[in-house]
Design a protein around this nucleic acid. Structure first.
Lengths: 214, 214
DNA sequence: GCGCTTATCTTGACAGCGCCAAGATTTGAT
DNA sequence: ATCAAATCTTGGCGCTGTCAAGATAAGCGC
């Protein structure tokens, strides 16, 4: 049911996604086309239509794969940092930045509203899980109970909590994005971890201090 | 020498840039094509080639116009905030975010390394000026002397200074980018300034505290 | 095993794109 | 006035995404 015998592929949707991943890795977003994906999967140029509709449909599926990898990277790094709050913050930041560097095209696609059709007011589980992971890091910094993915994204939060979440997320996202687009070349690559650790220490302290003052 | 009499345009380069700006505003990056710019400027589809080479050349010029607007926005907001360091930080953040919201396509293009050919190791004056504006805000926070644009970008900086610059820049850039790409819809638009002000106050305090402890 | 519905894939076509080459027109320096 | 250089047009090439129509296979009731 997996291999390509003739005419019917069997698992073309996943084959196209694999082809898209390969293509993105080898040639970048510029080399990514529906027809190129079809060629690589060994099917005709119109075959993807039935599974993904249009190019936005395929890229949306690619982006969701990206969220899968991101949440896996976050959890893997977090697993090595249980206990110390500063370490946890650093592990999260490192994971986010590392994901962007290891999967540059996925990162770019995930944050391109023109390419991806994800309704953020009702996000798929994978996106919820990613966001929950980030939210819960901040909640632990504040000494509060963590949330389930579904509620972490939907629930109305206090302005102060949102401030804290954004304090972490925006910095790490801004760093990852600027770095990826070549705007941070004056920061040596081997100083990256030092910067992230120092900054996470400061932000962690800042959040904890505000939490205690409440 | 400006109007279009016949054959020779007179100022096609600027006319194409104006057409590009209009096109980006009306239809976004997806509606932007070399041929559409040429049509709007009233010339043939191959006319842009002589002035900008290829699409990357035209978009690079568009991006430079974006830097012009950004640095102008930064200076305009900063002019109203002389004196108080916290206000200055907030004014800068507000300007950066406002620029991204008012010029979404320019913002996107400026930070797309695949579309723009700017050598960041030897950036054009406009880019230097933008970066200098951001750097100098941080230098003032630290109570240090500000720098000329040319040296602000080139000069080797201490890791601590870079940490401070990134603390401000990455946050505000991450916020602007995430907001622009629809990832911050759970944050009400009318709470944006409150968040920015609160966060700038915290970051400003953080930077000043570290500067005094030195 | 058979026939029928449905899903899947192919073929062919269309307009639009970036880019290139060759020719037409204008400018400007000599 | 002449000629080289700059500027713009025309035409064409291969590529793209998308659509329509037809071919093939799979699933399923019987």
């Amino acid at each position: 049911m997996a291999a390509r015998n003739s005419y019917h592929h069997g698992d073309l949707a996943n084959a196209l996604l694999d082809a898209a991943d390969d293509l993105l890795e080898e040639e970048g977003l510029g080399g990514f086309t529906l027809r190129a994906c079809a060629r690589r999967a060994g099917v005709s140029h119109a075959a993807p239509k039935h599974h993904f509709g249009d190019v936005q449909g395929l890229l949306t599926a690619v982006a969701l794969r990206g969220y899968d990898r991101l949440v896996a990277t976050l959890r893997a790094q977090l697993a090595q940092a249980h206990g110390d709050l500063e370490d946890e913050m650093f592990a999260t930041a490192k994971a986010y930045v590392q994901f962007a560097q290891d999967n540059p095209e996925h990162f770019r696609i995930m944050f391109r509203a023109d390419l991806v059709a994800i309704d953020m007011s009702c996000p798929p589980p994978t996106v919820q899980a990613t966001f929950a992971e980030l939210t819960n890091v901040i909640l632990r910094q504040r000494g509060e109970a963590v949330l389930e993915p579904a509620v972490a994204m939907g629930q109305a939060k206090s302005a102060a909590l949102i401030d804290d979440i954004l304090l972490g997320w925006c910095h790490v996202h801004g760093y990852a994005h600027l770095r990826l687009e070549g705007q941070l070349d004056m920061v040596p690559r081997d100083a990256e971890n030092d910067h992230l650790r120092a900054t996470c220490a400061r932000l962690s302290g800042l959040i904890q201090a505000y939490a205690q003052a409440r």
